[in-house]
């Protein structure tokens, strides 16, 4: 596992906040993710089911791959100057590449600061929207997913 975290206090739009390479099973629980959603069997839960389906390991949902596994949460809020108690996940836009993802895969994640906007709510409260894009690839460069996560900070 390796990490490369940018330490600049004031990132600019387009800056890479962090990169990290890790084996999925070293960081994430593919089976726990599937079970949390209600699955009790199948190749995402049981190794024997995965082997029966012709895979060499359990499958991992690419939906598990979020930004915070690449850019640590405290780094994320520190670098962007966000108030963690007043910031919420507002939505996501992205694409998932075709293909099965094994929990033994080694993935390369990159988290980039791609947008920011200030708004005023209908009640007159200030709102700050921050967008980061996280891209995951296999070590050989094959894409896994690219997702833009939007966060909204309700300024006190």
């Amino acid at each position: 596992m390796s990490a490369d975290v940018k330490t600049s206090a004031k990132p600019q739009i387009g800056d890479v906040l962090a990169r990290r390479t890790f084996r999925i099973s070293d960081v994430l629980g593919a089976s726990g993710f599937a079970r949390a959603l209600g699955a009790t069997e199948g190749p995402y839960v049981n190794l024997s089911d995965a082997l029966d389906h012709g895979f060499t390991a359990r499958l991992a949902s690419p939906a598990m791959l979020a930004f915070f596994q690449t850019c640590a949460m405290d780094e994320f809020v520190h670098q962007l100057g966000l108030s963690p108690d007043h910031t919420a996940f507002a939505g996501a836009t992205g694409q998932v590449a075709p293909g099965a993802l094994l929990e033994t895969a080694v993935v390369v994640g990159e988290c980039r600061y791609v947008g920011e906007e200030s708004k005023v709510s209908s009640s007159g409260a200030a709102r700050r929207l921050v967008v980061i894009e996280t891209t995951y690839r296999h070590q050989d460069g094959r894409p896994i997913s690219t997702v833009k996560f939007t966060f909204i900070e309700a300024t006190p």
Binding site: L37, P62, A63, A88, F89, A90, G91, A92, T93
Partner: peptide, 20 residues
């Protein structure tokens, strides 16, 4: 992801836009 793969087929690719 679960629903997309149910609709499009196992291990299919897809794009999405979702707001909380």
């Amino acid at each position: 992801d679960k629903a997309a793969r149910s609709a499009a087929g196992d291990h299919a690719g897809y794009t999405f836009d979702i707001q909380m």
